[in-house]
């Protein structure tokens, strides 16, 4: 697995919030931008609190606005998110000091706009 430093990860998030995400046409990017904007505050909260979460590495953060709770599994964090915040936007993120990059070798030949 390739890993991103926090700074690189922040840059990637920022680039997405500027309106472009790789892998689609302009219309699709606009839609994805709008969706990503819904989690902008949550990503910001996660990044801000991440330096204090070293002891929680590998667990899952449930983030809503400026609130952050920690759970042992993805399923638990997700269930708590829906119970607590209903259908409002929330973020579930694995706590990692160095962001893990997912590889998808299949996705060839799509234009990148970033």
């Amino acid at each position: 697995m390739q890993r991103l430093s926090l700074q690189q990860y922040g840059t990637e998030i920022a680039r997405c919030h500027q309106g472009w995400v790789c892998g689609g046409g302009a219309a699709v990017n606009m839609t994805r931008r709008e969706v990503l904007m819904a989690l902008e505050k949550e990503v910001e909260t996660y990044q801000k609190k991440l330096p204090d979460l070293k002891a929680e590495e590998g667990k899952y953060a449930l983030v809503h606005g400026e609130n952050l709770d920690i759970f042992g599994t993805y399923e638990d964090a997700l269930s708590a998110g829906y119970q607590k915040y209903k259908l409002e936007p929330f973020l579930v993120k694995k706590i990692q000091a160095v962001e893990q990059v997912q590889f998808v070798t299949r996705l060839l030949g799509l234009p990148c706009h970033t």
Partner: peptide, 8 residues
């Protein structure tokens, strides 16, 4: 409900 970093 999540955001992932991907490499393709």
């Amino acid at each position: 409900t999540g955001i992932v970093t991907m490499l393709t």
